[in-house]
Design a protein around this nucleic acid. Structure first.
Lengths: 224, 224
DNA sequence: AAGAAGGTGAACGGAAGGTGAACAAAAATC
DNA sequence: GATTTTTGTTCACCTTCCGTTCACCTTCTT
């Protein structure tokens, strides 16, 4: 299990990043400032740190220096909107990559993956649920020997459901994870995607099905 | 044992760097100019070169080009204090990293480690993906018995895709790796190069194709 | 039986990518 | 140094496909 430390004074960002990473199979730790970050680094087996530049107290550059030099860990820096100067400073401090806010959660995932690969930390983000094998890196689903290429939303949805097989996930939770907190569209949209997923899974397997739990949400059922 | 070549006309710097590296377990060679550097490169099994920009005679950029292109080795460039122009030139010459004088010895060590790690995989001079055999040193692509001469960008792109076959690379990642961080051009440029690559690959093989993953990026698919 | 929750098929709109051609820049050739 | 050729980028237009919505249907619950 790959562990990632998120250091940002903004609790909203902490939450957002943390959720994104966890739903992709990473273990996350959070810190709101450099001191907290260091105490987490001392205790836990962190593999990579995501660090915000602007923080009260010790700033992100300084923390980056500490993380890279004293702990030998890769760092991804979060910088405010398009300040070239910041980028330079960041790199000078030994950052492995940076990402400019506001950013797509997906983008962050890619960068993390790329950096980990560079560091030779094996990072196979694949998860299995019964016959299903879901490869998050490649957006690929395998059932037995056959591959399934799914549209993005359907893939995200399936991956989410498969991350906790045989367990109900509420409609709200699913929508929030796949569409984001700000989704204001028709809630029926979820139904349609579920329906399409069922259509795709049905011909390939009968041991993995999506069950409706009325008034609550959906559950990926795996029969052994 | 990893061997590092230090090229700088300033004997003080040579000594400083050399000591730092040796005390960290590297074997070091020294050269005071480009000609010396080349003769060392020819004789010894150097793994990485640290090169100063400002040198009498052949300058650091030119030497960097020689080292990367003819010897296929990573280079870390030493530049004088904060000249942005220098950095650009350095990167354009194929540097893997640069460091601004004056620098912390630790900083240099970290960069060297990072670069060497990074070179673990791509440094395999010829890299195979299915029928494809890509020779990074000669910019040559072989498919079965036939050779392919590709324009630089197309080659870079293909080599990058082939370095992780059957794995999706995001559009951003591809652009960043092939064009560099500062690329601000039309993102559609990538499409065109992908298209041209496909046109070239199609008549030669059917077992290696470039797949589009909508909303994400591209993947070099190898069918066995 | 009625209302609520979910299922379903079709259709629309738009985003993402594909493509051909024009243009610009760089390299090679003469 | 002028030319031709190759390479890289941009643009306009086209195609495909995905995500969403909507209207209507079915199932479940009480």
């Amino acid at each position: 299990m790959t562990s990632i430390l998120i250091t940002d004074d903004d609790p909203y960002i902490r939450k957002l990043v943390s959720r994104t990473l966890e739903s992709s199979g990473y273990e996350t730790y959070r810190a709101s400032n450099a001191d907290e970050a260091i105490s987490v680094l001392d205790k836990s087996g962190i593999d990579l740190a995501v660090v915000d530049v602007m923080m009260p107290g010790t700033d992100g550059y300084t923390l980056t220096k500490i993380v890279t030099e004293d702990y030998g860990l890769p760092v991804i820096l979060l910088t405010a909107k398009g300040e070239l100067h910041d980028k330079e400073q960041g790199y000078r401090a030994g950052t492995d990559d940076y990402i400019v806010k506001p950013f797509e959660p997906k983008e962050l995932l890619f960068r993390i993956e790329a950096v980990l690969r560079r560091y030779d930390k094996p990072n196979v983000q694949s998860l299995a649920a019964g016959e299903l094998v879901i490869d998050r890196n490649n957006y690929d689903v395998r059932i037995g020997t056959s591959h399934l290429m799914l549209p993005l939303k359907e893939f995200d949805l399936l991956a989410l459901l498969a991350s906790t097989p045989n367990r109900v996930l509420s409609r709200d939770h699913l929508i929030e994870q796949v569409w984001g907190l700000e989704f204001e569209g028709d809630e029926r949209t979820l139904n349609v995607h579920i329906k399409r997923l069922r259509e795709r899974l049905a011909p390939l397997t009968h041991s993995v099905t999506i069950q409706t739990v009325r008034g609550v949400g959906y559950r990926l059922e795996v029969n052994g």
